[in-house]
Simulated assay, not measured.
Amino acid sequence: MILAMMSTAAALLVPVVRSAGSYRSPQAGEASPGTVQTPTGPLTPLDRDFVKRVRLAGLWELPAGRMALDKGGTPEVKTAGEHLIAGHTDLDRAVLEAAATLNLGVPEEPSDQQKAWLKQLDAAQGEEFDRLFANILRNAHGQVFAVVAQVRAGTQNSTVRDLATVTNSTVLDHITVLENTGLVNYGALSGPPGGSSSPSAKPVPAPGGTQR
């Protein structure tokens, strides 16, 4: 979904959609090699997808964090931006090392959808930016959290396991600081991804409609 900011009033109805950094198991019929052997254990299609999407998450969440430092209207939003920058700087280093160990190519720029979200955040100002930042990023991290645990619990590859451990800690920290902004509408968050279907998008409420 590509969401455009037409006006401040229209933006109040813009949905927070499924995370750009959310993961899912490759579905039957998708072009993907099967499990391959590596020096650190078998590498499944889900393992490969996980590594690539951890890289993608950093490619758009780092710029989003910098926007929060520059445009955030509250100390809590700026703090969340600082945590995003610090966390994804370290995580990006870890995922590049993992990819090199696994001889796995990773993306070099955000997806078109991620670029659209960055454009949406870039166009917003003041309270509107704070609200969108907190809800888009919190929704993204909530989508990631459940699947990171799945990968961490099930992978037989020690490199992927180590990366999932670091990712889990980073995502939990980011969820916490985003919630500390006081702007997250919990009722509008998407649930964990299930199967091949995307969660239904829900509108972000206007400031003052925040659910705690």
Rank of each mutant, 00 (worst) to 15 (best):
I2V: 06
L3M: 10
A4M: 12
M6V: 13
S7A: 11
A10T: 11
L12S: 11
P15R: 01
V16L: 10
V17D: 05
V17C: 09
R18Y: 14
Q27P: 06
Q27I: 08
A28C: 06
G29P: 07
E30R: 02
A31M: 10
V36K: 11
P39E: 07
L43K: 04
T44D: 07
T44V: 04
L46K: 12
V51I: 06
K52W: 00
R53P: 07
R55M: 15
R55F: 13
L56I: 14
G58W: 12
L59P: 13
P63F: 07
P63L: 05
P63D: 09
G65A: 09
R66H: 13
R66S: 11
G73E: 15
G81C: 04
I85H: 10
D90N: 12
L91D: 08
A94R: 14
L96R: 13
L102T: 08
L102D: 07
G105P: 02
E108Y: 13
S111L: 13
S111K: 11
D112K: 14
D112M: 15
A116V: 04
W117D: 15
L118Y: 03
A123E: 13
A124K: 02
G126I: 15
L137V: 07
L137D: 14
R138G: 07
R138D: 14
A140W: 10
G142M: 00
F145P: 04
A146T: 10
A146R: 02
A153N: 09
G154W: 01
G154N: 12
T155S: 09
N157K: 02
S158V: 08
S158C: 05
R161H: 10
D162W: 01
L163D: 08
T165L: 03
T165H: 09
V166Y: 10
V166F: 11
T167I: 04
N168H: 14
V171G: 05
L172H: 05
H174R: 05
H174F: 01
T176V: 00
T176C: 00
V177F: 01
N180K: 12
T181N: 05
Y186A: 05
Y186W: 15
G187D: 03
G191M: 01
P193Q: 06
G194P: 01
G194E: 05
S196L: 04
S198G: 09
K202Y: 00
P203L: 00
P205S: 11
A206Q: 11
A206G: 05
G209E: 09
